[in-house]
Every structure is written in C-alpha cells, then in structure tokens.
C-alpha cells in the first residue's frame, strides 16, 4: 500500500460520504443518475464476490463490504425514500451500450478462464465507463449542484490517484496489471472535461454551468 493508493481509496470513500451527505442535506436525489449508481452496484458485486473466497487484509475486506453496502443503500434512497425527487426522463443514457461491450471485452481479456476472473475483468471494464450516464446527464442539463460536483471530483480524484500508484508499483514491485491500468486510464480520461469546468468554475466559487 503506497500513499497514492491510500489517498485514492480515501478519496473514493469520501466521494460516497459526500454523495450520502448531498442526498441527506438536500433531501433529494435530483441531479444524480440512477443508471450510474446501478452500474456501480453491478461493478462492486461483480468484483467483490471474492470477499468470500479470498482474504487480502482486514482493510480490504472492510472496504469491499462498505462499497457494496453503500452503493446498494444509494439505490434504495433513489428508488425508495427519495423516489419523488428522481427524474428518470433526463437519465436517458443507454446502458446496454456499456454492458454488452464490457461483457465482450471481459470474455476476450482476463487473467484466467474462470467465472470469477471473467466477472472481475467485466467489473473493471464496466467501472471505467459507469460514470458516463451521470456525465451525460450533466451535459444534458448543463448544470449541477455544487455538492454533486464535489462528489464527482472526489470520484475522479480516486481514479486519477490510482495512476501514480501503478507507476510506483511498477517501479517498486515490478508488477503491472494491464487490464486494470488500461481501463483505469480510460476511466480517468473521461473526467478531464469535468475537471476542467470544476477547476475553472466551481473552485473559483462559481456555479457548475456548461456553455449553452
């Protein structure tokens, strides 16, 4: 565990706490893509099924349990308690265009031909594009609550921090994970546009608004 990865994980943890805070404070799930949140549940369940078969560390196990349970809780908040504040009519990204290609990629690229390993690959590919429905929604509405942009920034920072972590691991341990690294670079690249607006507007105290 190096500092890049540790702060990356902390940023991921923070993003979920910010998300829960946003829902609680505004008593609304407005501006959040249910599709993106449902994709994250799929990602975590597919990847962390190994929590029952592999033991890495207490930290690893606790984080896995947290990510699975918190993402399921967010889905419940969106479809249960705060359902009236959810607007599916602006959440129109076609997730089948993500699920199909990711399943195909996982069948082609994996480390071992076993159910859990192919599922692991699938989850890595799916995570890299899971934010697209949310970014698409942002693009469509052209604006976002500041707290929602902090959530996205923390999530993007988590991905960005994993990149120096991999460089460090390659240098210090001489190991590389081509599937995770390739998908991770793609995932981080998807945030570049968002980060540009976040740094030039939100962090200067302005509202997150895209040019018409």
């Amino acid at each position: 565990m190096n500092l890049f990865r540790f702060f990356g994980d902390m940023s991921h943890l923070a993003s979920i706490l910010i998300l829960l805070y946003k829902i609680h404070a505004t008593r609304s799930v407005r501006g959040l893509s249910f599709k993106t949140q449902a994709l994250y549940v799929t990602v975590f369940v597919a990847r962390y099924l190994d929590v029952f078969t592999e033991f890495v560390s207490v930290y690893n196990t606790l984080m896995k349990i947290f990510f699975i349970s918190s993402s399921c809780f967010v889905l419940y908040l969106m479809k249960g308690r705060y359902r009236p504040t959810n607007d599916p009519s602006i959440d129109t990204f076609r997730v089948e265009y993500l699920l199909g290609p990711c399943a195909l990629l996982a069948l082609i690229f994996h480390y071992r031909w076993s159910f859990l390993e192919v599922l692991w690959s699938f989850s890595i590919f799916l995570e890299s594009v899971a934010i697209l429905p949310q970014l698409f929604m942002l693009q469509r509405t052209g604006e976002a609550e500041t707290i929602t942009t902090h959530y996205l920034a923390a999530l993007g920072a988590y991905r960005a921090l994993y990149i120096p972590n991999w460089i460090y691991r390659y240098w210090s341990e001489d190991v590389i994970d081509p599937i995770a690294v390739t998908a991770g670079i793609v995932q981080t690249a998807l945030y570049l546009d968002f980060f540009y607006v976040y740094f030039t507007k939100v962090l200067q105290g302005q509202k997150f608004e895209l040019p018409a």
Binding site: N60, F67, R112, I176
Partner: peptide, 10 residues
C-alpha cells in the same frame, strides 16, 4: 504476481 494482476486493489 503479474499473472493475477493487482488483486489486492479495490
């Protein structure tokens, strides 16, 4: 090892 990738990551 390399074969399994970084399975210790989240």
């Amino acid at each position: 090892g390399t074969e399994d990738g970084h399975k210790d990551e989240l």
